[in-house]
Design a protein around this nucleic acid. Structure first.
Length: 201
DNA sequence: TGCCTGATTGCCT
DNA sequence: GGCAATCAGGCAA
C-alpha cells in the first residue's frame, strides 16, 4: 500500500454523481490532511447527504448566500461552515455547479496522526481514541479544518480524499434519519458502516 | 444514564 | 430576536 502522501486523490468526477451514491461511496475512503507539520489520515465511516434546493433541511434550500456559496460549486469542493458559533462542519460538495448538494462528513476512524489530533481536540493522553473523530465538530477540530478550507477542492497534495482499497458490500452499510435535523425525518439520508466503533453518539 | 446549559457566530424571520 | 447539520461538563437521580 502506498503512503497516503503519494496516493492520488479521487478524481473530481467521483463527486459529480448522484449525491446519495457519492455519500455511500465515501464510506471506507481516506481523508488526508497535511497542515503545518502535522499529517492526518482517517477512514470515513459516517456521512449525511443534503440534497440541495428540494431538501428543506439543506443550507442550500433558500439559494446561495455568502455563507453557503461553496455548496453551489462543482462536485469535489469543500463546504466548511461554522455551527453554533463554535465548531466547524466539513462537507463534500457533489453533482454539478449550481446544484447545491453535499455530503457532510460526520465521523471517521483515525489511521495516523493520533497524537496531533488529541492535541487539537485538547484531550488528555489517556482519552479514548474512538472519541477523537466521532462527530462532525470533533472531526473538523481534530484535523484542524476551519474556514480557511472552505472552497478548496479535495484533490490537493495537502487536502484530499483517497481510495484505501476498502470494498464495502451494500449489506455493510446502514442508514437512518439525519442527526440534529427536525425536517424531512422520513428520509434516511445518514449512512454509516454497520457496527463500526468509530460512529458518532 | 440522562437532562440542561454555556460557549459564540451569523443567518433568517 | 431566535435559532442552528455541536460538544463537554455539571448536576440530579
Amino acid at each position: 500500500m502506498k503512503l497516503p502522501e503519494q496516493s492520488s486523490p479521487l478524481p473530481l468526477k467521483f463527486y459529480q454523481r448522484d449525491t446519495v451514491t457519492v455519500a455511500k461511496d465515501l464510506l471506507g475512503k481516506g481523508l488526508f490532511v497535511r497542515k503545518n507539520k502535522a499529517r492526518f489520515l482517517c477512514e470515513i465511516v459516517e456521512v449525511e447527504a443534503y440534497l440541495g434546493k428540494h431538501d428543506e433541511a439543506s443550507h442550500s434550500f433558500r439559494g446561495p448566500t455568502q455563507r453557503n456559496q461553496s455548496m453551489f460549486q462543482v462536485g469535489g469542493t469543500a463546504y466548511v461552515y461554522l455551527i453554533y458559533g463554535f465548531y466547524f462542519c466539513v462537507n463534500v460538495v457533489t453533482e454539478e455547479k449550481g446544484v447545491g448538494s453535499a455530503v457532510l462528513l460526520r465521523a471517521a476512524a483515525p489511521l495516523s496522526g493520533h497524537k496531533e489530533m488529541q492535541k487539537n481536540r485538547k484531550l488528555k493522553e489517556l482519552s479514548r481514541p474512538e472519541q477523537l473523530l466521532s462527530g462532525p465538530g470533533k472531526l473538523a477540530q481534530a484535523l484542524g479544518i476551519d474556514r480557511a478550507f472552505d472552497g478548496k477542492k479535495f484533490n490537493r497534495p495537502d487536502f484530499k480524499i483517497i481510495d484505501l482499497g476498502n470494498v464495502l458490500s451494500e449489506s455493510a452499510i446502514s442508514s437512518s434519519p439525519r442527526i440534529g435535523i427536525s425536517k424531512a425525518k422520513d428520509q434516511h439520508l445518514r449512512f454509516f458502516i454497520k457496527n463500526s466503533p468509530w460512529l458518532s453518539r
